[in-house]
Amino acid sequence: MRRIKNQKKRVAVTGAFGFIGSHLIPLLDCDDRYSKIVAIDIKSPPFAAKKLSYYNVDLTSPSAETELMKILKKEKVDTLVHLAFLSNPVANTEWVHELESVGTFKVINACSASKVKRFVMWSSTMVYGAYPDNPNYLTESHKKRGCPGFSFVQDKLEAEKAVMDFASKNDDFEYTILRTCTIVGPTVDNIFTSLLLRNYVPVVMGYDPLMQFIHEVDVIDVFKFVLDREIKGEFNVASDGVIPVSEIMRLGGIIPVPVPYFALKNVISFLWNGQLIRYPAGFLNYMKYVFNVDNEKLRKDMGFTPKYSSLEAIKNYLGTRRLRKIELAN
């Protein structure tokens, strides 16, 4: 307790002005226990903050590791929050691989070289992969099978593996991995929220998987919670309850267009290869099978209770969906 009082934390955030970072930084800025926030991003800061110093580092550039190392040393950072991950698949998969998989490797190396004590990383429950033989609730110890051919997931899985590898070789490396399930809320933009923005959503005929959600407020809270209490380990971050895709569509007044899997898969692959849609065919697995996680470790070991249930979170998103579309039209 005394240590926390005397020694204020100095936090670096990569991907600082993405969704989580841009909400987390103002929270850290108001908190007296944090004395410095180092933002690392390729975007310039969209807001001002007292303790913030901004560095433009591109994680895909070859010199990123040394640049990061210099910054972390200069600012005497003790905790690094690694949020430089994409929420939507993009066509340039090589660039994403450089950013997420190789980028994480560079960040870890820079951390260990500059004596950063703690490493907090954001990941997704999609790394478990959606399979028909998944148990309904996956625990942290379950094997992460990913989704071969879906680079959006595979890169995140490789990033996690890089952290695990490093941790197995360095016993004093403290890391936290927060694996969030599908994040929904009034403002967040990711693969799932943008899918549901349409009036007609193609679904895989005959499959109606149960989905799990977490509200965006809870996601930002859990990062703050972990930073405040210096919790380590890997955690699946999900709210209570599940809801099938068909019910989401019914609640939102969205019209599901059922298409047989083989037809949908081929059409989507074709459109994706022509860069006409944002969804590669690998995403269809997640519309067929379950990949829900057990949040018992989050509740019991970490002591964090999400404020919104899955149903409340998705209702909150669906309630603001129409207004979002107006914003897009302007």
Partner: peptide, 10 residues
């Protein structure tokens, strides 16, 4: 307005 009545195993 039909309520959502689905348990954790679907």
């Amino acid at each position: 307005v039909e309520p959502v009545n689905i348990d954790e195993f679907g």
